[in-house]
Simulated scan of single mutants.
Amino acid sequence: MRGRQTVRDMILSMLAVGAVGAGAYVFIPHDTKGDRILPVDYTSSLASARRAAPYPLLGPADLPAGWKATSVEYKKDPAGHANWHLGFETPTRQYAAIEQSDAARVDVLKNAVPGGQADGAAKLGAQDWQRLQGDRYRALTVQTGSATTVVTGTATYEELAVLAQSLK
């Protein structure tokens, strides 16, 4: 008789745990259709970073509809180099970012576009930008004063060019 009580108790315990789990699933909100990427407002971070940066820090002005800022950061690395990052989701749901730093150009490119190899050039406005194709990301890059500016991501070169041309 003792063996049956143990099996019965175990089954009742499993049913109780299952009921709690099912209740949690039903009553905890979850959205499988919605957008999981939360936009960020980068305007105050951009203004603060511009005051702190030792180089002319660039940010987008007048991006077309559909561009959503997703990440922003300004920090100094252990060597004292100022690093600016502003990430976006493009209208085609790809990733694009502005990376700007006064670290050595080769280091900036190595970090922003791992495995990056020259892939031609692009004339955007009055500036000549170098194109790079990396292992995962592609990029447009230009030297702006003492800083290296990289517009990088999984977006097409055309979308990256839109972001690059918006920089002021």
Results as ranks from 00 to 15, higher is better:
residue 90 T to D: 11
residue 90 T to L: 05
residue 91 P to L: 00
residue 92 T to G: 02
residue 92 T to C: 00
residue 92 T to V: 02
residue 93 R to N: 13
residue 93 R to Y: 14
residue 93 R to V: 04
residue 93 R to T: 13
residue 95 Y to P: 04
residue 95 Y to M: 13
residue 95 Y to S: 14
residue 96 A to T: 07
residue 96 A to R: 07
residue 97 A to R: 14
residue 98 I to E: 07
residue 98 I to R: 04
residue 98 I to A: 10
residue 101 S to Y: 08
residue 103 A to D: 11
residue 103 A to T: 05
residue 104 A to Q: 15
residue 104 A to E: 15
residue 104 A to R: 13
residue 105 R to Q: 15
residue 105 R to D: 12
residue 106 V to Y: 06
residue 107 D to E: 13
residue 107 D to L: 11
residue 109 L to E: 07
residue 109 L to H: 12
residue 111 N to W: 06
residue 111 N to G: 09
residue 112 A to F: 07
residue 112 A to E: 11
residue 112 A to Q: 08
residue 113 V to R: 06
residue 114 P to R: 15
residue 114 P to W: 14
residue 115 G to C: 13
residue 115 G to T: 13
residue 115 G to W: 08
residue 115 G to N: 13
residue 116 G to R: 00
residue 116 G to L: 04
residue 116 G to H: 03
residue 117 Q to R: 14
residue 117 Q to Y: 09
residue 118 A to M: 00
residue 118 A to P: 14
residue 119 D to P: 02
residue 119 D to E: 08
residue 119 D to I: 01
residue 120 G to E: 10
residue 120 G to I: 12
residue 121 A to N: 03
residue 121 A to G: 00
residue 122 A to W: 14
residue 123 K to E: 12
residue 123 K to A: 13
residue 123 K to D: 12
residue 123 K to L: 11
residue 125 G to W: 01
residue 125 G to H: 00
residue 126 A to Y: 00
residue 128 D to A: 11
residue 128 D to Y: 04
residue 129 W to C: 00
residue 130 Q to D: 13
residue 130 Q to H: 04
residue 132 L to V: 11
residue 132 L to D: 13
residue 132 L to F: 15
residue 133 Q to Y: 00
residue 133 Q to T: 04
residue 134 G to D: 12
residue 134 G to A: 14
residue 134 G to I: 13
residue 135 D to N: 14
residue 135 D to P: 00
residue 137 Y to F: 15
residue 137 Y to V: 04
residue 137 Y to I: 03
residue 137 Y to C: 02
residue 138 R to F: 02
residue 139 A to F: 10
residue 139 A to K: 10
residue 140 L to R: 12
residue 140 L to N: 04
residue 140 L to K: 12
residue 140 L to Y: 12
residue 141 T to R: 05
residue 142 V to T: 07
residue 142 V to E: 07
residue 143 Q to C: 00
residue 144 T to N: 10
residue 144 T to Y: 10
residue 144 T to W: 10
residue 147 A to G: 11
residue 147 A to N: 06
residue 149 T to I: 12
residue 149 T to W: 01
residue 149 T to L: 15
residue 150 V to C: 09
residue 151 V to H: 01
residue 151 V to N: 03
residue 151 V to E: 02
residue 152 T to S: 13
residue 152 T to A: 04
residue 152 T to V: 08
residue 152 T to C: 05
residue 153 G to D: 04
residue 154 T to P: 02
residue 154 T to N: 06
residue 154 T to C: 08
residue 154 T to M: 09
residue 155 A to L: 09
residue 156 T to Y: 02
residue 156 T to P: 03
residue 156 T to L: 05
residue 157 Y to P: 01
